Computed example of a mutant assay.
Amino acid sequence: MRLLATTNGGLESVTSAELAELVGADPDTHHRGVVAFDGSREAVYDLHCRSRSCHRLMEVLVDERVDGLAGVYEATRTVDLAAHLPDEEFGVVGTRHGSHEFTSVDVADRVGQAVIDGYRAATGDRLPVDLDDPTVRLEAYLYDDRFTLAVDLTGDSLHKRPYRVCEHDAPLRGTLAYSMLRLAEYAADDRLVDPMAGSATIPIEAALAATDRPPRPDLDPAFGVLPRYDAERFGERRAGHEPRDTDPDLEARERREKWRRCARVNVEAAGVEGAVDVVAADAREASLDADCVVTNLPFGIRVSEDLRDLYVAFADRVREGSVDRLVALTTKPDLLPLEFVERHDIPYGRIDASVVVWTP
């Protein structure tokens, strides 16, 4: 079956590489922030247990060229809706890009009406609608004349890590942190340092990846309500997953005591106290000796210090130290006086940011 995975926009290649590694998929970019691939239900179960860069996984119901809203309606009516949807409240999220005389809301409305009409024609029942908190969520994409309809399999997003007990002022998604680790080519036997660790999201993600522990052990996907999926089977596969026995070398540096306390709370919540050292250090002064340095650089939005001075001093420590690979998230890459071998421009909330990669 055809599947979609949503992820951090601009890092689709990272998620594609993870999907290939975990389930042998050969993904292509559907559109920004979404990759498409072929996979089995067993692959879906495994990815909900082990994927670290995906936000949601969806099964494609329709993917074809259409002519306007009428085409959207007719394409949706071709789906055997009774085979894919339970008699539960549903909602549709519409996304439209291109030149059209209608809106994303109109796309969602036409899909919703087609679902109601098609399900009633097949079963005699009218599906209830809940746009705020539906049991079943449908995603409808219309990019120019390409219409894709998919049913969400995940429910609560995979990026919502349960260890995030103490939240930083500028929180970093776990999925983005893991994607940065992949760009750093981090391996379980590497020494990794985050010189500006905040609440320690990057080192925690490294610890979970090194030990191959599920990033969302608390996840309750939609398998219990969706026809053709088996919540018990998913539970068995997750329970049968064996973490790796390894001893990663991870250091979370932070100069502010407030965030060191926060980091320790999150490290304990993640159950990786033995893997992550939280230490007091100033990134402008502390020397660096690490296989990988991965960090979220201050953006200047909530920081009063001179960013240029911070970035220059940090770059000096990187060049002077023993660092095999640096990966940094920043909104101001031009302030970092290093020559990058890669740069990935991404949306970060409502601002534009970049993930940059440097090697000596």
Rank of each mutant, 00 (worst) to 15 (best):
P214Y: 06
I202A: 00
E257K: 14
D277K: 13
D282W: 01
D220F: 13
R264Q: 04
A280N: 09
A281R: 01
A239G: 08
P214G: 02
P227H: 11
L226M: 01
D245Q: 14
G198R: 03
D220E: 15
A281P: 06
A239K: 13
A269Y: 05
E205R: 04
D245L: 06
D212Y: 06
V225L: 14
D282K: 03
G240I: 11
A283P: 03
A206Y: 02
R237V: 13
P203L: 08
A239D: 14
V267H: 01
A222V: 12
V276N: 04
G274N: 04
N266H: 00
M196K: 00
A269L: 08
S199P: 06
A281E: 07
W259H: 10
T201C: 00
V279R: 15
A231E: 09
E268L: 09
D218M: 10
L226V: 00
D189S: 08
D212S: 09
V279N: 10
A270H: 06
R244S: 14
A281S: 12
D282S: 08
R244C: 08
D249K: 10
E242N: 08
D220R: 15
A209P: 01
T211N: 10
E268W: 05
D218P: 04
V272T: 04
D220I: 15
E251F: 06
F223K: 05
E268I: 06
A252E: 00
G224C: 10
A209L: 05
D230N: 10
I204S: 02
V225H: 13
L219H: 13
D249W: 07
A239C: 09
R237A: 13
I202K: 00
D277A: 15
P215C: 04
R238G: 14
E232I: 09
A210N: 08
P195Q: 01
R191K: 13
P227K: 09
R191C: 11
A275P: 00
A210Q: 06
E268T: 12
I204P: 01
